[in-house]
Amino acid sequence: MSKIKICGLSTIEAVETAVKSGADYLGFVFAESPRQVTPEQVRAITENVPDAVKKVGVFVSPMSQEVEAIIKAADLDFVQVHGEPLTETVSVPIIRAVSIRKSTALPEAGVPEAGVEEYLLLDAPPAKYMGGNGTVFDWEAVDPAKLPQEKLFIAGGLTPENVASAIRYFQPLAVDVSSGVETDGQKDLKKITAFCQAAKEETHVSATNN
């Protein structure tokens, strides 16, 4: 049963809509991005978020000390790392983001010998920013059967229109969207609701058919 992550949140209205629509993870960008927020902002807009909904901080090539400070300041439950990976553990689980190209060698997320990451996120190659660029990677460049589906997040150009296809193809732990629920660069509350509804409907269909 695939869960839902709404990323790049920066307003209380978008956070509340994501929670009410059934999102399981809320993503907050601490790297350079139009969606960049501060730990103080995250604290303020997530004050009433239920404990069951997990807060994810998104970083690019960070230092462990920086990440740990923001975990505490923003009260994060997970961190998502693009670019250079962390070489040390931090106090919450790490989601390792990998940009998919034809020649990409995937790390074995969840295998202790592979590093400190516990989860794997597949994303499109970076454009101006490491993520949230609204482009879909070549799904057929990876074999879902070789992926740790119970630890797998799928991102990269997902929308309310194609999220069902992503769930059918990858059967991931979670699907992750940012620009696909925006209009003119701002979170669109109707699109957030539509994305969550489409993901939940496909998850229900997949569960019924298995």
Rank of each mutant, 00 (worst) to 15 (best):
1 M>K: 12
2 S>P: 15
3 K>I: 03
4 I>V: 13
4 I>H: 03
6 I>P: 00
7 C>F: 11
9 L>C: 10
11 T>L: 07
11 T>A: 04
12 I>R: 15
19 V>I: 10
20 K>L: 11
21 S>G: 08
22 G>T: 04
24 D>P: 00
26 L>V: 11
27 G>K: 03
28 F>R: 00
30 F>S: 05
30 F>M: 06
31 A>V: 07
31 A>T: 07
32 E>W: 00
33 S>V: 04
34 P>M: 02
34 P>L: 03
36 Q>V: 06
38 T>K: 01
39 P>E: 13
40 E>A: 14
40 E>W: 07
40 E>P: 02
44 A>N: 12
44 A>L: 11
45 I>D: 01
51 D>T: 00
52 A>R: 09
52 A>S: 10
56 V>L: 05
57 G>A: 08
57 G>M: 03
61 S>H: 06
63 M>N: 13
63 M>S: 14
63 M>I: 00
66 E>Q: 13
67 V>D: 01
68 E>G: 00
75 D>N: 13
76 L>D: 06
76 L>W: 02
78 F>I: 06
78 F>G: 03
81 V>R: 10
85 P>F: 06
86 L>E: 05
90 V>N: 08
93 P>G: 12
93 P>H: 09
93 P>I: 06
94 I>R: 03
94 I>H: 04
95 I>P: 01
95 I>K: 09
96 R>A: 06
96 R>L: 11
101 R>S: 14
102 K>E: 15
106 L>W: 07
109 A>T: 01
109 A>I: 06
111 V>R: 14
113 E>N: 07
115 G>M: 05
116 V>Q: 04
116 V>F: 02
117 E>R: 01
118 E>H: 11
118 E>M: 08
120 L>I: 01
120 L>W: 01
121 L>N: 03
121 L>E: 01
122 L>P: 02
124 A>S: 15
126 P>H: 04
126 P>L: 01
128 K>W: 02
130 M>A: 15
130 M>T: 10
135 T>H: 12
139 W>A: 14
139 W>Y: 13
143 D>H: 06
145 A>E: 15
147 L>M: 02
150 E>S: 12
151 K>A: 11
154 I>P: 01
155 A>C: 02
166 A>S: 14
167 I>Q: 13
167 I>Y: 11
168 R>C: 10
169 Y>N: 09
172 P>G: 00
173 L>G: 07
173 L>E: 09
175 V>C: 05
178 S>H: 02
178 S>M: 04
178 S>W: 02
179 S>V: 07
181 V>H: 08
182 E>D: 12
182 E>C: 06
190 K>E: 15
191 K>Q: 14
192 I>Q: 06
194 A>P: 04
195 F>N: 07
195 F>Q: 07
196 C>F: 04
196 C>M: 04
197 Q>T: 15
197 Q>I: 00
200 K>R: 13
201 E>F: 00
202 E>W: 01
204 H>N: 11
205 V>K: 13
207 A>M: 12
207 A>C: 01
209 N>Q: 14
